[in-house]
Amino acid sequence: MSGPFSDVGNTIFENKSVLTESYQPDTILERDEEIEAYSHALQDILFGREPENIFLYGKAGLGKTAVTTYMMNELLAEVDTRPEADHVHIHKINCNGRTLFMVVRELVNELLPENASPFPKRGLGTGDAFDELYAQLDRIGGTHLFVIDEIDHLEDVNTLLYELPRARANDHISNAFVGIVGISNDYTFRQSLSPKVKDTLMETEISFSPYDAAELQTILQYRADKAFRDGVCKQSAIAKAAALAAQDMGNARQAIDFLRVGSEVAERTGEAHVTDEHIERARGLVRRGRLENKIRDQTEHAQYILEAIARLAETDDLPARSKAVQTVYETVADSHGATPLTTLKSVQDHLSDLQMLGFLIRHERNHGRSGGQYYEYELNLDQEIILETRAEIARHT
């Protein structure tokens, strides 16, 4: 009797991991200007001087994290050859879903001696965590770069960005230098900071713009040469994946996804080459997968509100006002055994957030003094994706 893998034959891949999100390329392509700006901002470290603060801006998939990983590795290697440079410590943290206390506590625990008890989760405040952080920085000495990803997701970001850069000036530390590398998907993030924080940072800003089709084709060619066996991937397929991604988001991650999923389609159907047709089929699969992940990333009640709007779409009752959405939302929340949000304002806040994230289209209505001014909402994606994703989530909760 044959097993489930008995008919698996040869693969078209030489090294499929090259097409995954976690792959860190040896060479960074099409980001020479950003690397030059990054290098200039870090150069003081090579002479034992206090580092500049650096902020990277750009949408997801534009190379911010890959370039940062590359630059940190290059910096560490170069520091080893420079007698004037202090020892450099790189601390990476993601702010998504974390409070300021959680961020500082995690940094403290990374710096504590191996046999020390971790900083407690309860009983002490954020100020205590900062005090311990400063104590550990001074104990270790050297230059410390804090690479803070999704920094715009941190609610009390002003405190973090005031405390760390001024730690030495405020006499919290004397044996160490501190620098911040902030990474944000929000180009307007700096505008939200307090005036005193803006004055304190004096940072170098590096903006990552979307790739064009030619740049994406260069990146995909590099990946394809490593990922596939010789002659497997058609040049036209690489060009198509690059063109589709450039037309949509200018996003390298999306372009690589098109190529990976297209090649999976080819392999699954037993074809020897990856063609334009496979890339076209991948386009729909990738878009659907990204939307599903985006839905799963929303809070519980935001998902219930999306499900409610999808239900309204099923009955052709969109666009709808927030009160109509609230009525269906309450029914949806009840059906999942959850207590609905009690105020219309809470529902309206979620609707506004979902509209900004691209899930919804908002129409402003103005009927003058008789009817007043209000918003109506409708979906900006297929309702079936929402309902199927929500059903899948419900099955596993």
Rank of each mutant, 00 (worst) to 15 (best):
G9E: 01
F13R: 12
E14C: 15
S17E: 02
E34S: 12
I35E: 04
A37G: 13
S39N: 02
R49Y: 06
I54R: 11
K59D: 06
G63I: 01
K64A: 02
M72N: 05
A77P: 02
T81I: 04
D86R: 15
D86C: 13
V88C: 06
N94V: 04
N96C: 15
K121Q: 07
L137Q: 09
L145F: 11
I148G: 13
N158V: 03
P165E: 01
I173K: 14
A176V: 05
G182A: 11
Y187S: 09
R190T: 00
L193C: 07
L193D: 00
S207V: 04
S207W: 03
D212F: 12
D212R: 12
L216M: 10
G231D: 01
K240F: 06
K240E: 00
K240A: 03
Q247V: 03
N251V: 02
F258P: 05
E264R: 13
G270F: 08
H278W: 03
G284C: 10
R287W: 10
G289I: 01
I295L: 14
R296W: 05
T299D: 10
E300P: 11
A313T: 02
E330V: 07
A338S: 09
T339S: 15
P340H: 07
V347A: 15
V347Q: 08
S352I: 02
D353N: 12
E364N: 11
H367Y: 08
L381T: 00
I385A: 09
A394E: 01
R395Q: 06
R395N: 05
